[in-house]
């Protein structure tokens, strides 16, 4: 049940997807892997939207060089753990949700436990090895993975529904080389918003998800392109559970549930 306060807080979006949709957000548990450039806007917007339980994982300390893009962290937070900084801001932004933070490095020994029984995993990482771990866990636990990545003014995003869409390994069999990537805050802001939008749509069962499609954003050209991506029957992560009769279009999203008032 939504409280009077929640009905008021979310009034304008309840116009969009009804109290039923808001309840779905409230019941959801979203795992945000990373409290950096992507994780900051994603967790802020999922918090204000009323996602009931947000778990944010990061192991870093806030540095001055983070502050051009990691909008959860302020100048005063330099030297503080990103998880502590994130928890403080997110709880202030929306005290009506539960914010959990975990100060650790995601690795193969802890990833399954950290993800737990989340409703969705948001990939806000800055490296492919950890993304592959999240992907394996998502596929194994059949939890959706909302992928995003950026470099400079370029970005990409896709939504992965295990058993239905290609997994991250199908789409990117080989990781791009590791580097200190250039970035301006608007790019993770924009890609993060696509990911957060996907999470909300998935949770409230509305719209058409970015499944089977890789969105490519070119900020220099202000141009978005999408390319179709397909499952790899030989994929070492999800190939074994390949179901040829299932097409990426058949995503588990019902018809729009918008509520008009």
């Amino acid at each position: 049940m939504l409280s009077e306060r929640e009905l008021d807080r979310y009034k304008r979006q309840i116009l969009l997807f009804g109290e039923e949709g808001q309840e779905k957000l409230k019941k959801a548990k979203i795992f945000v892997a990373g409290a950096g450039g992507l994780g900051s806007p994603i967790s802020i917007y999922l918090a204000v939207a009323g996602v009931g339980t947000l778990t944010v994982v990061d192991m870093d300390v806030v540095e001055l060089t983070n502050l051009n893009r990691q909008i959860l962290h302020y100048d005063r937070d330099i030297g503080k753990k990103k998880t502590a900084s994130a928890a403080e801001k997110l709880r202030e932004i929306n005290p009506d949700i539960t914010v959990k933070v975990i100060d650790t490095t995601i690795d193969k020994t802890n990833v399954a436990r950290l993800v737990g029984s989340s409703s969705g995993i948001v990939d806000a990482m800055d490296n492919f090895p950890t993304r592959y771990l999240l992907n394996e866990t998502a596929v194994h636990k059949k939890i959706p993975l909302f992928h995003g990545a950026i470099r400079g003014l370029y970005g990409q995003a896709t939504t992965i529904i295990p058993d239905v869409t290609p997994c991250l390994q199908c789409i990117f069999p080989k990781a791009p080389p590791k580097e200190v990537f250039p970035v301006v805050g608007v790019t993770p802001g924009l890609i993060g918003m696509i990911q957060a939008t996907e999470v909300i749509k998935y949770l409230i069962h509305d719209g058409r998800l970015l499944t089977g499609r890789l969105l490519i954003w070119d900020g220099l050209e202000s141009h978005a392109e999408e390319i179709c991506v397909e499952r790899d029957p030989k994929c070492p992560v999800c190939g074994g559970s390949h179901s040829p009769d299932k097409k990426s279009e058949t995503i588990p999203v019902k018809s729009p549930a918008r509520k008009k008032k």
Partner: peptide, 10 residues
Amino acid sequence: IAVFPPVAGG
């Protein structure tokens, strides 16, 4: 023909 470099930052 389309040639695309995936990105990895976050």
